[in-house]
Structures are given as structure tokens and as C-alpha cells.
Computed example of a mutant assay.
Amino acid sequence: MTSVIAVVVAYNRRDLLAQTLDGLASQDRPVDGVVVIDNASTDDSGELARAHDVVTEVVTMTENFGGAGGFAAGMARAVVQHDADLVWVMDDDTIPTPTALSALLKARTDYPGTPAILASRAVWSDGREHPMNTPRNRPGASRELIAAARAIGARQIRSASFVSILIDARAIWEDGLPEADFFLWNDDFEYTARLLRYRVGLFVPDSVVHHLTRTFGASETDPGARFYNEVRNKIWLFTRSEAFGPVERLLYGGRSVLRWGQTVYASGQRGTLLKHARRGMKDAGKAPTPVEVVLANTPVADEVRVIQARAGRIHG
């Protein structure tokens, strides 16, 4: 039987985390394990997770490594220690409906191939599809690929967010882990695009999760200090990652620059955003710190090095 290990990254949202874990416990196809990465929460998120019946293990990090570091840690623990065939990742504000996993697995079985990533449909509290988590279509997909996906009620995608995606562990072993130094924003864009550069990814609308962000909107809405991560990480992505070829770099890079301009123009704090953007551009001149270095003094350090070495991504 295919082993599915869920990975949840948690940080100071214990009430939402409880709903996430309850949602995992209610799956009509039970998960085979749940790994919660507690990013050094200062509330009782870790204690709540340890007390929940669905949780297999809670890994307490030495500090908050953000979503990027948390998911890298969780994937490493899931595939090395728990021998996962598939890793189902989500944030602690993601509540899966009871058929979310079974719908992903059905699409995986019905598709005439082996998708590396299957993404759920994320909706907000009022049922609207969440713009923060809409997967990007695969540009230039052949008619055959489009038809194969459409035949099972899915569509071909080029990237996805970390809000409920099912990842084939073989892709993790082959291409390594997310870039932990991104900390937050665009880490999922870089990672899923890297895995899907030469592999198939599918958006599965029948798999539904609720993404309970505070407000409804895309990530560029009122970014504040996070605009630093948006700018720095996008520059890293388009200049240092293997996720995209030359044409895609121009396509997505151009769209990003246009979106930055729109974000600044619409902001009531343009000077502040420009300051964060300048700092992001400056810091993007230095390469991201390798994930095995970022997570070197954590409980998952050995697992991270094993995966990165297997993928040929160890630096130094």
C-alpha cells in the first residue's frame, strides 16, 4: 500500500492547528502518519499537536525557520524516517475536507502517468477559491497532456503553493528539498516549479481544503515588510534556481516586475515598500545559504544532508 505522510508546519496558531489536525483525522482515506514541524512556537501549538491522536511525531525546531525551512524539515523527516511514498504538505491554517486526500489519490491512479505533484483546490472561509493558492497553468502543454488531465477532471500545472499538495517522494529524492533560506514567500513557487520543470503536475478541483487566512486576497495585497522576501526571493528564483528555462525566466520575471510596480502604486506606504524592495535587491546579490547549512543545528540535520547528498545538491 502506498504510504502517505502528512507534513504540517505550525507557528503560533494553535486554534487553527487544532482544526487542521481534526481535518486530517477525518479523512475517508486515513493518512499513514502526520509529522508536525513546530517552528519554535511560543504558544502551546507543540503541546496541542503531541496530544492529538492523529499526530505521529512533533519535531520542535530550535527557532522559527519560516515556511521554507519548516517544509524542508518536514519533507526530510517524512521520507527518511517515515519512509513516505507520498508527502502531503500544508500550513497550520489549512483545513482539509474529508475527501481531500482520497480525491488526490484517485486522480493519481486515474491519470495515465505518474504525476510528481497533485494540488488541491483551496477555498476561503466563504467558499470562494483563494487567489493566493491558484496553481499556474503549464504554458505550452501539448494537447495530449491537456486532454489526459481533463479526462480525469484535472488540469496541467507548472507550479503550486504549499497549501495542500501531494508530492511523490521520488521527486524529493531526485531534486532535493526547498530552499530554506527563502524563509517565506516564493519558496513554494521555486520548489514546485523546480520539481515540475520536467515532470507532470495536476490541479485536482475535487480535492478541497479551506485556507483560513485572516483576509481574502492574493499575497501581494498589503505585503508590508514581507515585500523584502518577495523581491529578494524572486530575484534568487530567476537568477539562481534551475526551476525555469530562459524563456520562462523572461515570462515570469517580467510579470513579477510588473506586479511589484502595481503593488507599490496601490500601497499607502510606498516609501516603506520601496525601502524593503531596495534591501531585497541588495541582499539578492548573495546566494541563498544551502538548506543543509540553514538546518544544520536542528533535529532534522542528518536527514536533510542525506536527501541533499542523494540529489547532488550538497554545497561544499
Score class of each variant (00 low, 15 high):
Thr2Ala: 12
Val4Met: 05
Gln19Cys: 03
Thr20His: 04
Asp22Leu: 09
Ser26Phe: 02
Gln27Trp: 10
Gly33Pro: 14
Asp38Pro: 15
Glu47Gly: 10
His52Ser: 11
Val54Glu: 02
Glu57Val: 14
Val58Lys: 00
Glu63His: 10
Gly69Tyr: 02
Phe71Ile: 13
Phe71Glu: 00
Gly74His: 04
Ala76Phe: 02
Ala78Thr: 03
Val79Asp: 00
Val80Lys: 01
Val80Gly: 05
Val80Pro: 09
Trp88Ser: 04
Val89Ser: 07
Asp93Ile: 09
Thr97Phe: 12
Pro98Cys: 00
Thr99Val: 13
Thr99Ile: 08
Tyr111Asp: 12
Met132Lys: 08
Pro135Glu: 00
Asn137Gly: 15
Glu144Cys: 07
Glu144Arg: 14
Glu144Pro: 11
Ala147Cys: 13
Ala147Tyr: 06
Ala148Asn: 07
Ala148Tyr: 01
Ala151His: 02
Gly153Asn: 03
Arg155Ala: 08
Ala160His: 07
Ser161His: 01
Ser161Cys: 15
Ile165Met: 03
Ile165Ser: 03
Arg170Val: 11
Ile172Cys: 08
Leu177Val: 08
Asn186Gly: 04
Asp187Arg: 00
Glu190Asn: 07
Tyr191Ile: 08
Arg194Tyr: 08
Leu195Ala: 01
Arg199Asn: 15
Arg199His: 12
Val200Leu: 03
Gly201Leu: 00
Asp206Gln: 15
Glu220Lys: 03
Asp222Ala: 11
Arg226Phe: 10
Arg226Cys: 11
Phe227Trp: 06
Asn229Trp: 06
Asn233Pro: 15
Ile235Arg: 11
Leu237Lys: 00
Thr239Glu: 14
Glu248Tyr: 12
Leu251Glu: 10
Gly253Gln: 00
Arg255Cys: 11
Arg259Met: 09
Thr263Met: 01
Thr263Ile: 05
Tyr265Cys: 04
Gly268Asn: 07
Gly271Leu: 05
Asp283Leu: 12
Ala287Ser: 15
Ala287Thr: 10
Thr289Asn: 03
Thr289Gly: 09
Ala296Ile: 04
Thr298Glu: 01
Val300Lys: 04
Ala301Trp: 00
Ile307Glu: 03
Ile307Thr: 06
Ala309Ile: 02
Arg313Asn: 10
His315Tyr: 05
